[in-house]
Nucleic acid binder design. Structure first.
Lengths: 242, 242
DNA sequence: ATTCGAAAAGGACATATGTCCTGAATTCGG
DNA sequence: CCGAATTCAGGACATATGTCCTTTTCGAAT
């Protein structure tokens, strides 16, 4: 992590994401811009939390590691997103590990200032409320979806959600996209089983695989499999910032 | 549902749960007390939400039903808890169905007043923030736990969390406790499989079953199985209300 | 080019879990 | 008290998923 000394850039982001009222005057001097490179850890499960971060550029991976060493990828985040909000409100240690997938830029504020100057600042509270509510909503859907559907359906859904964001219909092994083993951990299954299901999809003509790259061939077919349950970022009212 | 016309009782609850600043003067006239009987639906998945409810007495069951008709019990709630908060903030239809398990009492406020008089009221916003953050935290744990552990472990954890609340170490088939098929739906498995695992536990001497009632015999043994992952209500800072 | 090692794909087998169905136990109305 | 209906426990089997290991591929260093 390195701090980016560029107040203009910071102002630009605040404007672009309509965060000027959220982080009002008293807080401004305590905002900083931070840059992270792919693979950098922004924060680590179990540690004490100190900063609230606002993701304004790049892509993050959130994951948790169990005591047995298994990794579960909980989500991938793109702007606008907040890291450390739950820990700020609850005063608990960091819940999940956060890692930069691409080159990443975030606005950081120390909890101290947030507490001193923002505790009663309605726009900030409303902002946090919207963000956390959105997170809850997504997680709730995710929980139900995962518990009620087999890997086959989850993979179909995952492929749809990932490839709709990328312009082309492919899932690359690396680069800006996500590795297959990340995908396995996200869906909550083993790499082995993921392969099994992908092979099935190939046979059914839903996807094709070429040396580590999955190409979606039949979005409609996948949709039929996934039902209407998609790992989507349902945006609700007031979510027009991004 | 029937409205309870008793301003004194209402005041009593507000005081008992330290909600007087949360629902300040302008909101007071619009608060009502509602009573529900076991089995009553408080709200139904997919419908338009109108009221924010605060659970002050009794026990609720939150569940969702998939398009294929499967039911997944997401949680059981006891005071202090809020229903309709996510829907209020996001302006979306009701996410999950809420049903009274016991006789239940809740404070209700229509969104209209909440919006008119509470939109910028910091104590209310802070309250909602704490509640939703708590919900998120529990759900996040729940998701990880469910995806990473087999039914055996989840059941052990469930038995521990349920029986620690009841004074005695038993899970009853009905009454104030929870049915076995609810338990199955909560753990996210089939009734059949639940039975299989319970049988296993019996053989291992962890529990005993007598005509529909499960009695925990060896809490330590269950703890060892569950690891440190318990379906607990971890309370954090500012969660001293209850 | 050769070799080595890491990542990718899949085979073989064990285990976990779901579905369907049956029989025993319990309840309940007459 | 009896029989029908309902609930409960479990058998038999199919499917989903996990673990371990082998084979293959591919790239990088020698």
């Amino acid at each position: 992590m390195k701090e980016i000394q560029d107040r203009e850039q910071l102002k630009h982001y605040l404007r672009a994401f309509q965060l000027e009222s959220v982080f009002h005057e008293p807080l401004r001097p305590h905002l900083s811009l931070y840059g992270f490179e792919p693979g950098d850890l922004i924060c680590t499960q179990g540690q004490a939390a100190e900063y609230l971060y606002v993701l304004v550029h790049g892509k993050l991976k959130i994951y948790t590691t169990s005591s047995e060493g298994k990794t579960l990828v909980l989500s991938f985040k793109t702007p606008l997103e907040v890291i450390g909000d739950v820990e700020y409100v609850r005063g608990t240690p960091i819940l999940n590990t956060v890692e930069a997938v691409t080159s990443v830029c975030m606005i950081g504020v120390h909890y101290r200032w947030l507490h001193n100057y923002g505790k009663d600042h309605a726009p900030l509270l409303q902002f946090l409320l919207e963000i956390i509510t959105q997170k809850f909503y997504v997680k709730s859907n995710s929980l139900s979806f995962n518990l009620m559907h087999p890997v086959e359906v989850r993979l179909a859904s995952y492929l749809l959600s990932v490839t709709s964001e990328e312009s082309d219909s492919r899932l690359e092994g690396q680069g800006s996209a996500v590795s297959l083993s990340d995908a396995a951990n996200f869906i909550g299954t083993s790499y082995r089983h993921l392969n099994r299901v992908i092979r099935q999809f190939c046979i059914q003509g839903l996807v094709e695989r070429h040396k580590g790259i999955i190409v979606v061939k039949d979005r409609n077919g996948l949709s039929a499999l996934a039902g209407h349950n998609i790992y989507e970022n349902h945006r609700g009212k007031g979510e027009t910032r991004s």
